[in-house]
Amino acid sequence: MRSSLRNVRGLGSARSGTEHFWILRLTTVANIPLVAAVVVILVALSGRPHAAVVATLGQPTVAILMLAMLWSVIVHMRLGMQVIIEDYVHSEGRKVVLLMANTFFSIAIGLASAFAVFRISFGL
């Protein structure tokens, strides 16, 4: 029944570094084709009227592709911003607040965009 020294002193790793690294790499690989495909779609849609844009975005393949891109990109950007915060913000209080804000921002972006894609797809 002894606490390890690293816990008592508040030093040592949080034991999540490998997973962070791995998911950042996994989403990097996923982002390459997903973002490339979405860029092609967005360029094709630029300047098109609302009805045409909605018709394209509502197609199952386009909607699923868009959702996959958003998922991968948002997970990736949250992890990336976490690294930036942890590198530059050393005050514990401010760091925790910013890390929470980072997660909230990412979830808000994800929910809003997913809501929009679903709404367009289901023609609501």
Binding site: L57, I109, A112, F115, I120
Partner: peptide, 13 residues
């Protein structure tokens, strides 16, 4: 910049 994409998608919806 993702805010712009989300804004655009929500506006389209």
């Amino acid at each position: 910049g993702m805010l712009l994409l989300v804004w655009w998608l929500v506006a389209a919806s």
